[in-house]
Write a protein that binds this DNA or RNA. Sequence first.
DNA 1: TATTGTTATACTCTATAACTATA
DNA 2: TATAGTTATAGAGTATAACAATA
Lengths: 154, 154
Amino acid sequence: MTSEVPQALSGRLSFLLGRLYMRALDLEARRLEALGVTVKQQAVLALLADEGPMTQQHLGQRLGIDRTTVVAVVDGLEQARLVERRRSPADRRAYLLTLTPDGVRAGEQGRGLVSGAEGELLGALDEDERRTLTELLGRAVRGQGPGDAGAPPR
Amino acid sequence: MTSEVPQALSGRLSFLLGRLYMRALDLEARRLEALGVTVKQQAVLALLADEGPMTQQHLGQRLGIDRTTVVAVVDGLEQARLVERRRSPADRRAYLLTLTPDGVRAGEQGRGLVSGAEGELLGALDEDERRTLTELLGRAVRGQGPGDAGAPPR
DNA sequence: TATTGTTATACTCTATAACTATA
DNA sequence: TATAGTTATAGAGTATAACAATA
């Protein structure tokens, strides 16, 4: 049983982020159970649907997880016949991870389930505030990172 | 090496929250090293400074961690002479965790270090946006419970 | 009988090192 | 020599179960 947010920590970002993150994982995982996929597996489905086939190495970089961790995630998706490992013609060491038709469908359904979980997570905020929160989080994460040359820190 | 946020996941809250949370922990931990305390230990110092002495059980509830996990955290603080375990006169099974003068000072310094880390974390946002983000996170975490906004559990 | 703090234990998650097959 | 995928292993981090002291 978790009591309410202590005043002393109410402005502490790592604390707030941690609480909300854990709750988000929990809500998403619970809903995705109906699909038989984990949160990470659903992220893989969404990524492949959006960017097309890619190697396990590349997938790991996109997701921010080690390539050794990718193995088990893909194993599960392959056994569920949602993803296929196809040898890359260009580099026979690598696989090109490819969605099966079932994988495409599962990915779409997963999106819906995740949206539902997020709605529940942000139940205290109205539509406008949800958009603002997502946008600010995105900016903060992208932040000083590589890529689009935004304004460097002053 | 983490690449930029994939478009497919740019609106995925658990993904954004996770990335930002991990980065926050990392930044805070690095700065708090100078004090010789971990992020969790600093949370304990801040909480005791704000709410006064409390039992390990109560502390765990406030922080959302198990009481068995509290033991090691307090062990470290006690060895560093920042916190003392004093037997509760009212209930001799329990300790009343109490800040030492060094603990009070460390807590104050820790607050400053954490603020610095948060400033770095949100480098991409201006002052107004940072306040908005913190407020929305707080509302989301406190969230849907119209419930127990009263006295903390004994 | 229930609860506080404690220990031992197990479980989850993830990364490092080493191997293979290619390049 | 370097890289993709794999395996075995180890390290955090945290929770569950059981125990002593106390309620």
